[in-house]
């Protein structure tokens, strides 16, 4: 890649600019393809159904959270509370299906409630984020920091800081089950990605959200209900976090409020950034975010599968973010 660039530099400048533009637009795909090619060549047992499923399963919750994050960032905000909201949803769900709050006539009713209620609560907390930000004009990073800190405390208080362990197949199918060999969580992820991409592309909500991120004053003067849209965006981010939280505890057969969703906000933001969405708002590349998350996941997998420690993977992850931002900058100027 570097060789191609330097070869181009000798040509007329516009060509170099075009390469940069192309890279900033398709660089994420290119990187993913290169990573896959590398693994096909060097990693043993890479081209198997199992490897694919492992990677997709591991990345699905990050993608789900990152999609909510993409919308928030597109509207010019940021949501630090996603990990804590995952913990809240994760702590609440087992209490419901284990009949610790109310006695359900049968397990299926309990499980149904265990899916719906925690996700709704997470959405409600998301709305609270939006309310704080719009009502008091708090910066999003500060507004969501409140629940980032308090949310985990709330989650711990649900379970008295204890880890709740369970074996409930009726509930856990969401994290462990498969349909035609595809993990259910991957299907959920796919649905959310497609839905979000469609929302951004085709709905008024999507267009108005990007208008707010691009120029909030102009959007308001053009009749966009800025307050309402912002609250909705944070609510959606909360719902995504809630879904991710439930999947995580189902996968782990345990709800540990101290660990569920820990640090996921940074993974999500990294996926958004690598995916090419400007952190300043006004754009939202949903599929870019999916690719960004896949790249980060695949880098980690590649390094682990080839005997490089996780610590090094972290540094390389940071390197990727720098590269993505650099490309955006160069293409913009």
């Amino acid at each position: 890649m570097a060789m191609r660039l330097s070869a181009v530099d000798r040509d007329a400048e516009p060509t170099g600019t075009r390469v940069l533009l192309w890279l900033s637009r398709y660089g994420t795909i290119l990187a993913l393809v290169l990573l896959i090619l590398f693994n096909l060549a060097f990693t043993r047992n890479f081209a198997t159904w199992q490897t694919l499923n492992i990677n997709l399963t591991q990345v699905s919750t990050i993608v789900i959270v990152a999609i909510g994050m993409t919308l928030v960032i597109g509207s010019g905000g940021i949501d630090l509370s996603v990990g804590s909201l995952m913990a809240i949803a994760g702590a609440l769900a087992p209490l419901i299906f284990l009949n610790r709050i109310v006695e359900f006539p049968n397990i299926y009713v309990g499980v149904a409630f265990a899916f719906v209620i925690p996700v709704m609560i997470a959405g409600l907390f998301g709305y609270l984020n939006g309310w704080l930000i719009t009502r008091f004009n708090v910066q999003p990073i500060v507004g969501t920091l409140i629940l980032f800190i308090a949310g985990r405390g709330i989650a711990q208080s649900f379970t008295d800081s204890n880890q709740v362990i369970f074996t409930t197949p009726e509930f856990q199918f969401i994290g462990l089950g498969r349909v035609f060999g595809i993990p259910i969580q991957v299907l959920i992820m796919t649905v959310i990605v497609v839905l979000a991409a469609w929302t951004i592309r085709r709905t008024i909500f999507g267009k108005q959200l990007l208008a707010i991120g691009g120029n909030e004053t102009a959007a308001r003067l053009a009749g966009v209900r800025v307050t309402r849209i912002k609250r909705q965006v944070y609510t959606i981010s909360g719902i995504c976090s809630g879904i991710a939280g439930i999947i995580v505890i189902a996968r782990n057969s345990a709800a540990d409020s101290n660990l569920v969703g820990l640090g996921v906000e940074l993974d999500a933001i990294a996926a958004v950034a690598v995916g090419g969405t400007l952190l300043t708002g006004g754009r939202a590349y949903v599929f870019g975010t999916l690719l960004g998350a896949l790249i980060i996941q695949l880098v980690r997998f590649t390094l682990l599968a080839n005997g490089v420690p996780d610590a090094a993977a972290l540094v390389i992850k940071a390197g990727l973010i720098i590269l993505a931002v650099w490309l955006q900058r160069r293409a913009a100027s």
Binding site: I204, K207, G214, N215, A218, A219, A222, R283
Partner: peptide
């Protein structure tokens, strides 16, 4: 600049920003 255009958006999206709710 500050109160009118959404710079990153297209002519199409800028032109129809206010009318969108009626176009749907």
């Amino acid at each position: 600049k500050v109160e009118g255009i959404v710079p990153e958006m297209s002519v199409r999206e800028n032109l129809t920003l206010a009318i969108l709710p009626r176009l749907s």
